[in-house]
Design a protein around this nucleic acid. Structure first.
Lengths: 219, 219
DNA sequence: ATTTTATTCAATAAATCTCTTGAATAATTG
DNA sequence: CAATTATTCAAGAGATTTATTGAATAAAAT
């Protein structure tokens, strides 16, 4: 294989991987799956895609070694292929929201609308968790909490938040988190809690980022 | 801005960034520019693209905040926008060559053809450099060596390699490097030197990876 | 064995991306 | 200021990607 031929093969292969990521619907699916595995139905419900369309996108992701699938009865469950890909995806999103001006702006405007500026970073969180006056709140659906959550977090799903307000102490500093920077659950939680007089901030990132960080620190 | 609207904006923006990377010609340009800035002419010479085509690809990269340009007389020089992007690009290529089977195979077959298996990693290099019997050889063009090179490396451009063979000691272990895993210069150097009886291996990665590693260690 | 349910496959029109061609700019030289 | 050089812009044909539609599978329930 001559030099040019080799280069073409490498850049072609690399661009195929990038093409698989170059679509908003597929990125949303990846984001979903970074929470843990989901059935096609689950993905359809959360994204609003048609079934056939979601399936097609999943095939693309599968053929490019981004997700894997397993069948269980009627259902086919998809999940991210490995932690290496998860770390890569998070590097991409982190780059995008810190270095791409349009995205940075969209994110900040959204957080401003939800009174969710002044967020806590993962590094800050670590030292805050030793403080007994801090309450770490996981606002994702219970199923996702059960698949894995940040150590020390309490599960308070969005639909239970309003009715449970009286159970929380206004003395504590609440930190809400969800699925990562693109997820809007924590922003909504901050808005609701702020409007009810609680002292609350959101975590900059979410559970998947925390998990990858844990894995890296173990090495 | 409602949740769905926000998500659409974020995933659209992110997919635009990915689209900019989803093309072999643009990836080759990025790889070139990760050596340091180059004029459009320089890119055209190295890639074989037509001038207009190369310029178009450069516009795409520029509009997506991947490269920046500066004019100097007749020439327009392009370069990678910042070290954060460089680190991201390297994460992508590293993932591709270690986790995507097709690319891993292509790379290994190529290295086998060039007797360049058994490569040295950046971590190994560090400890080897203290050894006086090791000669670190930068086989890129002199212009790239001058823009920056691994500390302790000697510049031996490919076109000077054959005529300078007698200057090198067969007692030393030679480590050749170039621009990174996709670059074929070091592989060619390994082939030539091996066939002439030298003890030589190639560096797994190249100068850009070393540079990013240095920056990270400084933090 | 037929029906039901969840998913995949296949075909197609519309949208997008890519390369080529030739003209248009912008800076320099004579 | 005309000519030259390096680069960009604009338009169009051809290739690829995308969402939609409806049919085909595969496993489970009746």
């Amino acid at each position: 294989m001559k030099g040019r031929e080799f280069k073409d093969a490498m850049y072609d292969g690399l661009s195929k991987l990038m093409k698989a990521l170059a679509n908003p619907a597929r990125l949303e699916i990846i984001e979903m799956l970074s929470q843990g595995e989901k059935s096609v139905e689950g993905i359809v419900d959360a994204t609003g895609l048609t079934i056939a369309n979601a399936s097609q996108h999943l095939q693309v992701l599968k053929n490019n070694n981004i997700v894997k699938s397993r069948r269980e009865g009627h259902y086919v469950f998809y999940s991210i292929i490995n932690d290496e890909f998860l770390a890569l995806y998070q590097h991409i999103t982190k780059y995008a929201i810190t270095e791409v001006a349009v995205l940075e702006k969209t994110l900040n405007r959204h957080r401003q609308d939800n009174l969710a500026l002044n967020s806590v970073t993962l590094d800050e969180l670590e030292s805050m968790l030793h403080n007994k006056h801090v309450l770490l709140m996981d606002v994702r659906p219970p199923s996702e909490y059960e698949l894995g959550h940040i150590t020390g977090a309490v599960s308070v799903p969005m639909n239970e938040l309003l009715c449970c307000l009286k159970d929380f102490s206004k003395e504590k500093e609440i930190i809400a988190y969800c699925r990562g920077p693109f997820c809007v659950l924590a922003d909504e939680a901050v808005k609701i809690l702020t409007e009810n007089g609680f002292n609350v901030r959101r975590l900059d990132e979410g559970y998947p980022e925390w998990k990858v960080k844990q894995l890296e620190e173990q090495k």
